[in-house]
Simulated scan of single mutants.
Amino acid sequence: MRQSWRFIETVLGIIFRHPIVGTSIIPILPDGRIVLVQRRDNQKWGLPGGMVDWGQDIPTTVKRELVEETGLELSKIRRLVGVYSAPNRDPRIHSICVLVEAEVEGTMENKDILEIIAVEAFDLSSLPKSNLSHDHERQLQDYLDGKTTIA
């Protein structure tokens, strides 16, 4: 019985004491504008993205999250911008975020009304950098600075 409990404790520790993996996307429209989403939970702007589902890889997650949150289709992932793993980067949970730059196409549409208030495209000069959710200000600045970051 004691051995069984240790096994259960170990499994629960693996499930609940390890970071969740997710992705953020810097969607670039053909005209060069960057697409952001306004989150319902804190009303702040942020990069689209979300958690990697069981059995999915990062490219599949990027494609799924783009459609779910922006209505846009992935044309191609241009580059890995960074991996962000600070325990306090997301106020909800400890998560590891893989940030990619992606070419996108299609028509913007909020398809996730439970999580997203608005979807909007911004010129580089009009990005709402001081009102971004989570650590997206840092992620976006690393992208704009041309960095590849492991943090």
Rank of each mutant, 00 (worst) to 15 (best):
M51I: 09
W45N: 03
M51N: 11
K44A: 13
Q43V: 13
T60I: 05
Q38T: 02
N42C: 01
K44M: 09
D57L: 06
V37C: 00
M51D: 06
P48H: 01
R40F: 12
V37Y: 00
G50D: 06
I58W: 05
V52F: 05
G46I: 00
W54K: 07
G50S: 10
V62D: 10
R39Q: 08
L47I: 07
Q43S: 13
Q43F: 07
V52L: 15
M51W: 07
M51E: 14
T61V: 08
D53G: 11
W54L: 12
T60H: 14
T60K: 13
W54T: 02
W54Y: 04
G55L: 12
R40Y: 06
K63G: 08
G50L: 03
G50T: 09
L36P: 02
E65I: 05
D57K: 10
L36I: 03
G50Y: 00
R64M: 04
P59R: 09
Q43P: 01
R40H: 14
T61N: 14
K63R: 15
L47E: 05
R64N: 01
G46K: 08
T61E: 08
D53C: 10
G49N: 02
W54A: 08
D53S: 14
Q43E: 14
L36F: 00
P48M: 01
W54M: 15
E65S: 08
D57M: 03
L36E: 00
D41T: 07
G46H: 06
Q56G: 06
Q43Y: 05
D57R: 11
T61D: 11
Q56E: 15
G49L: 07
T61H: 08
G46E: 06
R40K: 11
D41A: 06
M51C: 09
P48T: 01
T61Y: 08
G55V: 04
M51V: 15
G49T: 06
T61F: 05
D53V: 04
P48Y: 03
P59A: 06
K44L: 04
K44C: 10
V62H: 07
L47M: 09
P59S: 12
D41Q: 06
